[in-house]
Design a protein around this nucleic acid. Structure first.
Lengths: 357, 357
DNA sequence: GAACCTGGTCGATACGTATCGGGAAGTTAT
DNA sequence: ATAACTTCCCGATACGTATCGACCAGGTTC
């Protein structure tokens, strides 16, 4: 019963079906040449394949330069974002969905190499090559790995805008610039004139984009440069009530908060407001520039915008498959709109309407 | 700069270092035979490899041994079902964790074939074989697929107990029998004498196990057979307040509820209780035989037990790797304990203690 | 000095698949 | 009847690596 220890190969099928290995390859493969194979033989081959329980050997096919119909996902984060609470999880969802639709399987490069750090190259092996192409995720981009991938001409798409000088590659990003600009404009439309921006400490692309949008919005709203107020949230440096008081004294009626991954920024704002006796949104309107994972767990329904994460995942796959089909290898950048979520943390500034809460 | 189109191979290194490809293989590989290679040559090889930016071709390497260091996950449901994702996610989490630890990558067989139904075999080709082994998930087991897998001697582990007559294979299951028995015993210890069991309609293994545990618990508690009260929740057949009233009249003071995937069972109980003016836990103690995904979203903190999903995922991987290493191919069944979660839906029966809520 | 080891290297081969050029039938046009 | 085409299939080969047996130089042992 369990005599068959070795995996059946195309040769085995060939013998059983009375054809050559090449013919088996053509049929199994559904290659364009299949049209020229007699239907009778096709049936014989498929039948034999089924009986033997044949399946393609990924390595062998890959060796020849063929496709595996495998798309990879690699993350630079220490933990693979398979946990639903994770910021990156919705991306995975979109990736999976799109991948499945297109008849590809998904390869999660989750194996942890010797060190704690996650690398593309383990033992000098480019692990990603097992997949036809790869979607890259994560904040802590290793530039040397990236350079190596580019050097090898390996097809990949990054999720999130990445600006690496001298390197050109495809990514799918959220349009933080536009979304933040829109927030500023709608606040201005409500009558807010002095708006602060609570900026994240690490000056990555997504932070820069939000600041760009902030400044652009102010400009378009006709608010002078000298009104610009940017506060950088240091590592662990909580926002104090005193600081909020200063802002109020300076005429600030609204603040944009860039959410950190662990929601500390949000709770810091809420805490500081309570401390200073400032009411949200009565005294201060607050808008989150994004939707961190735990935003639903907070009591307040923050006014914010949603990053179209699932869609980004889907588009990344689409782009990747395009990349695979095009030999040209054009690198493309795709920006997706964020979706405004009206919450209850925004109101007209008190100075204009005497309304109290 | 981009002249080097082709990846460097061991042959390239060999030429550059003035040795043979075999020697390169030995050195790169760090094989035991490396001790017998002159240090001078070792240096030359490594140097050349570094200069060329060499990286091993995993496919070629695996072609030899047949192993891809890939573990598959196959589910008879969509891999990331949006509506009930929380149900399957903990399994995946455990699988991923364990897989990563052991240096394997994870292959999600998410490709959807022509029909909506998910099959192991597409075009008579077993897709799973792309992985070295596979973890199987999902409620709707296709027995023909399973039989074919067994016939092919493909290594896999099922998550959840599966009883297929005449077939023998490995699985990792939650010990519903023991967990349910314990629930009954602890209710009996509180003084409950008449306990009802709200059973799911589909008579799958996990439902059978709970019923077995229910009966065993009653027996051990010395409650007579004629006291047994099992109510099958039909498809969409809501539990009515009238029915609950009948139970109360019959002396029922506690009910075990088998949660359905969509939490309809729970809300049905709650609704019926409200309708009949029955207080939980004052008039009726309720215990959930499991922890459905949305249990945290409900207002009440149900007394229940937790299925050790992550652990099940981890153990499944462990078992699978054992299966891969053992040529013997012993099929094993692993039962893991559920963890009791004390909630606030259980109290002593009113008939014994006059305490009111 | 012949027989024997031994450390160090290489050549040959196998792994399973994809592809290309060619060849054996069969068909049509001359 | 033969040339020119089709149609359908096969043989040969290449992909990059790991491994095993062969080989060779130099040293050791009687």
């Amino acid at each position: 019963m369990a005599a068959q220890r070795r995996r059946p190969t195309q040769m085995d099928i060939a013998r059983r079906a009375g054809v050559s290995q090449s013919t088996v390859s053509v049929v199994i493969n559904g290659a364009p040449a299949m049209a020229e194979v007699a239907e009778e033989k096709q049936r014989a081959v498929l039948e034999a394949a089924a009986e033997l329980g044949y399946s393609v050997n990924a390595s062998a096919r890959n060796l020849k330069g063929g496709r595996n119909r495998l798309l990879g996902v690699f993350t630079f984060e220490p933990v693979f974002p398979v946990n639903q609470r994770d910021f990156y999880f919705p991306f995975l969802l979109g990736i999976e969905e799109s991948t499945a639709e297109r008849g590809y399987n998904l390869l999660l490069f989750s194996a942890v190499t010797a060190g704690a750090e996650r690398r593309v190259f383990a033992d000098g092996v480019n692990q990603l090559k097992m997949a036809d192409g790869c979607v890259l995720l994560g904040r802590h981009l290793r530039e040397d790995d990236l350079a190596a991938l580019l050097r090898e001409d390996f097809p990949f798409v990054f999720i999130g805008r990445r600006d690496v000088p001298g390197e050109e590659f495809s990514y799918v990003a959220a349009d933080y610039v536009g979304a933040t600009r829109d927030v500023v404009l709608s606040l201005a439309a409500l009558g807010h004139r002095r708006i602060a921006y609570l900026k994240a400490a690490d000056d990555k692309e997504w932070t820069q984009d939000r600041e760009t949008g902030f400044r652009r919005g102010l400009e378009e709203a006709g608010i002078a440069d000298d009104q610009i107020l940017v506060h950088v949230m240091g590592e662990g440096t909580a926002l104090t009530g005193a600081e909020l008081d200063q802002w109020r004294a300076a005429g600030v009626t609204a603040v944009l908060v860039e959410p950190s991954q662990d929601d500390s920024a949000i709770s810091a704002v809420e805490h500081a407001a309570t401390e200073a006796g400032i009411e949200i949104p009565g005294d201060l309107s607050v808008v989150l520039l994004g939707d961190p994972p735990l935003v639903h767990a907070t009591e307040r329904d923050w006014t914010r915008f949603t990053i179209p994460r699932e869609q980004m995942g889907r588009e990344a796959v689409r782009l990747l498959l395009e990349l695979l089909d095009d030999d040209a290898g054009v690198k493309r950048h795709l920006y997706l709109d964020c979706i405004p979520v009206p919450g209850d943390s925004v109101a007209e500034p008190r100075t204009r309407s005497g309304r109290t809460t």
